[in-house]
Protein backbone atom coordinates (compact mmCIF):
# COMPACT_ATOMS: atom_id res chain seq x y z
CA UNK A 1 0.00 0.00 0.00
CA UNK A 2 2.80 2.39 0.75
CA UNK A 3 4.19 1.94 -2.77
CA UNK A 4 1.48 4.28 -3.88
CA UNK A 5 3.38 7.13 -5.50
CA UNK A 6 0.48 8.39 -7.53
CA UNK A 7 -1.34 11.66 -7.15
CA UNK A 8 -3.71 10.44 -4.48
CA UNK A 9 -3.11 12.11 -1.12
CA UNK A 10 -1.28 10.34 1.61
CA UNK A 11 -1.20 10.68 5.32
CA UNK A 12 1.57 9.74 7.65
CA UNK A 13 0.55 8.18 10.89
CA UNK A 14 2.31 7.25 14.07
CA UNK A 15 0.74 3.93 14.95
CA UNK A 16 0.69 2.64 18.49
CA UNK A 17 -0.84 -0.16 20.48
CA UNK A 18 -3.30 0.33 23.25
CA UNK A 19 -5.08 -2.58 24.85
CA UNK A 20 -4.28 -4.78 21.85
CA UNK A 21 -5.79 -2.39 19.37
CA UNK A 22 -3.91 -0.22 16.91
CA UNK A 23 -4.36 3.53 17.04
CA UNK A 24 -2.95 6.17 14.77
CA UNK A 25 -2.34 9.87 15.15
CA UNK A 26 -1.24 12.22 12.44
CA UNK A 27 2.52 12.59 12.49
CA UNK A 28 2.25 16.37 12.40
CA UNK A 29 0.75 16.33 15.89
CA UNK A 30 3.58 14.24 17.31
CA UNK A 31 6.64 16.03 18.59
CA UNK A 32 8.61 13.04 19.73
CA UNK A 33 8.43 9.60 21.19
CA UNK A 34 10.35 8.88 24.37
CA UNK A 35 10.90 5.90 26.61
CA UNK A 36 9.01 5.59 29.84
CA UNK A 37 10.49 7.51 32.69
CA UNK A 38 9.68 8.23 36.26
CA UNK A 39 6.39 10.10 36.42
CA UNK A 40 5.79 12.45 39.30
CA UNK A 41 2.27 12.26 40.59
CA UNK A 42 0.38 15.50 41.03
CA UNK A 43 -2.17 15.56 43.80
CA UNK A 44 -5.72 16.51 42.85
CA UNK A 45 -4.96 16.63 39.14
CA UNK A 46 -7.60 15.17 36.81
CA UNK A 47 -7.61 11.42 37.14
CA UNK A 48 -6.40 10.55 33.65
CA UNK A 49 -3.36 12.76 34.20
CA UNK A 50 -0.84 10.36 35.54
CA UNK A 51 1.59 13.06 36.55
CA UNK A 52 4.35 15.19 35.15
CA UNK A 53 7.71 14.42 33.62
CA UNK A 54 10.84 16.32 32.80
CA UNK A 55 11.13 16.74 29.05
CA UNK A 56 14.55 18.35 28.63
CA UNK A 57 14.02 20.89 31.32
CA UNK A 58 10.34 21.43 30.70
CA UNK A 59 7.70 20.01 32.99
CA UNK A 60 4.93 18.45 30.92
CA UNK A 61 1.82 16.56 31.94
CA UNK A 62 1.46 12.91 31.02
CA UNK A 63 -1.90 11.36 30.21
CA UNK A 64 -2.49 7.68 30.68
CA UNK A 65 -4.37 6.91 27.49
CA UNK A 66 -5.66 3.62 28.85
CA UNK A 67 -7.25 5.44 31.74
CA UNK A 68 -8.46 8.17 29.41
CA UNK A 69 -10.32 5.58 27.35
CA UNK A 70 -11.52 3.71 30.43
CA UNK A 71 -9.43 0.69 29.55
CA UNK A 72 -8.02 -1.61 32.21
CA UNK A 73 -4.59 -0.68 33.50
CA UNK A 74 -1.56 -2.76 32.71
CA UNK A 75 1.91 -3.49 33.98
CA UNK A 76 4.45 -1.11 32.44
CA UNK A 77 6.99 -2.84 30.23
CA UNK A 78 10.02 -1.86 28.19
CA UNK A 79 7.70 -1.54 25.23
CA UNK A 80 5.76 1.32 26.76
CA UNK A 81 6.40 4.72 25.29
CA UNK A 82 5.39 8.27 25.93
CA UNK A 83 4.19 9.93 22.74
CA UNK A 84 4.65 13.67 23.14
CA UNK A 85 2.04 15.60 21.22
CA UNK A 86 1.44 19.27 20.69
CA UNK A 87 -2.01 20.32 21.79
CA UNK A 88 -2.70 23.96 21.28
CA UNK A 89 0.91 24.91 21.83
CA UNK A 90 1.38 22.82 24.93
CA UNK A 91 3.34 19.59 24.97
CA UNK A 92 1.51 16.69 26.49
CA UNK A 93 2.76 13.15 26.90
CA UNK A 94 0.56 10.12 26.28
CA UNK A 95 1.44 6.75 27.67
CA UNK A 96 0.86 4.00 25.10
CA UNK A 97 1.55 0.27 25.24
CA UNK A 98 3.99 0.37 22.34
CA UNK A 99 4.75 2.39 19.24
CA UNK A 100 4.68 -0.01 16.32
CA UNK A 101 5.38 1.95 13.17
CA UNK A 102 5.19 5.15 11.25
CA UNK A 103 3.08 4.35 8.26
CA UNK A 104 2.09 6.11 5.11
CA UNK A 105 -1.48 5.51 4.07
CA UNK A 106 -3.51 6.85 1.19
CA UNK A 107 -6.32 9.10 2.33
CA UNK A 108 -8.70 6.97 0.32
CA UNK A 109 -8.24 4.04 2.70
CA UNK A 110 -9.64 6.04 5.60
CA UNK A 111 -13.25 5.34 6.35
CA UNK A 112 -15.45 7.45 8.57
CA UNK A 113 -15.80 5.98 12.05
CA UNK A 114 -19.57 5.94 12.11
CA UNK A 115 -19.76 2.81 10.01
CA UNK A 116 -17.79 0.78 12.48
CA UNK A 117 -18.21 2.33 15.88
CA UNK A 118 -21.22 3.92 17.38
CA UNK A 119 -20.69 5.75 20.60
CA UNK A 120 -21.81 9.19 21.55
CA UNK A 121 -18.44 9.97 23.07
CA UNK A 122 -16.34 9.42 19.99
CA UNK A 123 -15.70 12.89 18.66
CA UNK A 124 -11.99 12.29 18.84
CA UNK A 125 -12.29 9.24 16.59
CA UNK A 126 -11.80 10.64 13.13
CA UNK A 127 -11.67 7.49 11.06
CA UNK A 128 -10.71 3.88 10.60
CA UNK A 129 -7.93 2.66 8.37
CA UNK A 130 -8.40 -0.82 7.01
CA UNK A 131 -5.19 -2.43 5.93
CA UNK A 132 -4.50 -6.04 5.05
CA UNK A 133 -3.34 -7.01 8.50
CA UNK A 134 -5.31 -4.84 10.85
CA UNK A 135 -7.55 -1.95 11.63
CA UNK A 136 -6.04 1.34 12.74
CA UNK A 137 -8.25 3.70 14.68
CA UNK A 138 -7.47 7.32 13.87
CA UNK A 139 -7.45 9.79 16.74
CA UNK A 140 -7.73 13.55 16.75
CA UNK A 141 -5.34 14.04 19.60
CA UNK A 142 -6.37 17.61 20.40
CA UNK A 143 -9.92 16.41 20.92
CA UNK A 144 -8.78 13.52 23.06
CA UNK A 145 -7.20 15.98 25.44
CA UNK A 146 -9.69 18.82 25.26
CA UNK A 147 -12.68 16.52 25.62
CA UNK A 148 -11.09 15.20 28.75
CA UNK A 149 -12.21 18.11 30.81
CA UNK A 150 -15.78 17.40 29.84
CA UNK A 151 -15.30 13.75 30.62
CA UNK A 152 -14.01 14.78 33.99
CA UNK A 153 -17.03 16.95 34.54
CA UNK A 154 -19.51 14.27 33.59
CA UNK A 155 -17.77 11.83 35.90
CA UNK A 156 -18.14 14.24 38.75
CA UNK A 157 -21.78 14.75 37.93
CA UNK A 158 -22.43 11.06 37.88
CA UNK A 159 -20.98 10.52 41.32
CA UNK A 160 -24.02 11.50 43.41
CA UNK A 161 -26.26 9.28 41.28
CA UNK A 162 -24.11 6.23 41.66
CA UNK A 163 -23.81 6.88 45.36
CA UNK A 164 -27.57 7.05 45.66
CA UNK A 165 -28.01 3.86 43.69
Amino acid sequence: MSENTGVSEERQLVVFDLNEEAYGVDISAVREIIRMQEITRVPRAPEFIEGVINLRGKVIPVVDLRSRFSMPGTERTDEHRIVVVDVGGQDIGMVVDAVTEVSRIPSSSIEPPSTVITTNDSEYLTGIVKSEEKLIILLDIAKVISDSEQVQLSEVQQLPDSAAA
Partner: peptide, 16 residues
Amino acid sequence: LGEYVGGARGVSGASI
Protein backbone atom coordinates in the same frame (compact mmCIF):
# COMPACT_ATOMS: atom_id res chain seq x y z
CA LEU B 1 2.79 22.94 35.53
CA GLY B 2 0.86 24.01 32.48
CA GLU B 3 -2.86 24.41 32.14
CA TYR B 4 -3.93 20.79 32.33
CA VAL B 5 -2.52 20.15 35.76
CA GLY B 6 -1.86 23.75 36.78
CA GLY B 7 -5.06 23.98 38.74
CA ALA B 8 -4.05 21.31 41.20
CA ARG B 9 -4.81 22.63 44.65
CA GLY B 10 -1.92 22.69 47.06
CA VAL B 11 0.73 22.69 44.35
CA SER B 12 2.09 26.00 43.11
CA GLY B 13 4.51 24.72 40.50
CA ALA B 14 7.21 22.23 39.78
CA SER B 15 10.93 22.14 39.51
CA ILE B 16 13.56 19.87 38.06
